[in-house]
């Protein structure tokens, strides 16, 4: 099976105020197509930075990254943005949804942005049904619970049938029962649909649900835990 994600010798520096942080220190990583990988590690290890760089949201200072055979470093911002709209799904810990749009409008967004507006509404409704929120189409995020919001986010993440889904602490803000349910959905969908998934977490229980667990510390992948 081919590599969906391949990173080699990745370095990333950034500034916070007067201090310069060497966040990624020569990191190497590969993820196969359809695999669900968890990246675990203590706070400050650089997990979020890694995901931002791999997904094209951020640029790297040195090294190589290929997504589905395409060299990310050579792409323009516009190309990367388009790629995100068409081929990726994102789930963050919070602030996922645009507060001024309803659930179904939020889910539609990637389709509208990649020019596939024709069936957008229908596909969005279908996605919401899959995550069990068919009755909450017209609710704004403020009227949904934390778990429901994450489910809407998941629906949005897969509405455009992405190649890669990036999830950064997707259950971080939820209680344990809801966390379980969310993870169940994520795992089931991964099996059903077969997209590649990179899941970042600091909790071992959650990481255990993935196919493979990578331990990250101080800007590099230290070891494989599973």
């Amino acid at each position: 099976m081919k590599n969906m994600i391949y990173a080699e010798g990745v370095h990333k520096y950034y500034d916070t105020g007067e201090v310069k942080v060497h966040a990624l220190r020569g990191l190497n990583l590969s993820v196969k197509d359809g695999e669900m990988v968890a990246i675990i590690g203590p706070s400050g290890a650089g997990k979020t930075t890694l995901m931002n760089c791999l997904s094209g949201l951020d640029t790297i200072s040195d090294g190589k990254i290929w997504l589905d055979g395409k060299n990310l470093v050579n792409m323009s911002d516009k190309e990367k943005t388009r790629m995100r709209a068409q081929k990726m799904g994102f789930i963050f810990q919070f602030y996922n949804l645009l507060p001024v749009l309803t659930a179904v409008e939020n889910v539609e967004v990637p389709l509208l942005l990649s020019g596939k507006s024709k069936d957008a509404r229908r596909r969005a409704e279908k996605a919401l049904n899959i995550v069990g929120l068919g009755h909450r189409y017209d609710h704004r995020p403020s009227a949904l619970s934390g778990g429901e919001r994450q489910r809407v986010t998941i629906a949005r993440a897969l509405v455009n049938e992405p190649d890669i889904i990036w999830a950064d602490e997707p259950t971080g803000d939820l209680d344990s029962k809801t966390s379980e349910r969310i993870l169940d959905i994520l795992v089931k969908l991964n099996e059903m649909i077969g997209h590649t998934m990179v899941l970042i977490t600091h909790e071992r229980d959650i990481a255990e649900r993935a196919d493979r667990i990578l331990y990250m510390e101080n800007g590099v992948i230290k070891k494989r835990l599973k």
Binding site: D77, P99, V109
Partner: peptide, 16 residues
């Protein structure tokens, strides 16, 4: 900026 970050992640271009 958080909201804008999410928008960029999901595919809004800078111009948009």
């Amino acid at each position: 900026r958080m909201e804008i970050g999410i928008m960029r992640a999901v595919g809004f271009e800078r111009n948009m």
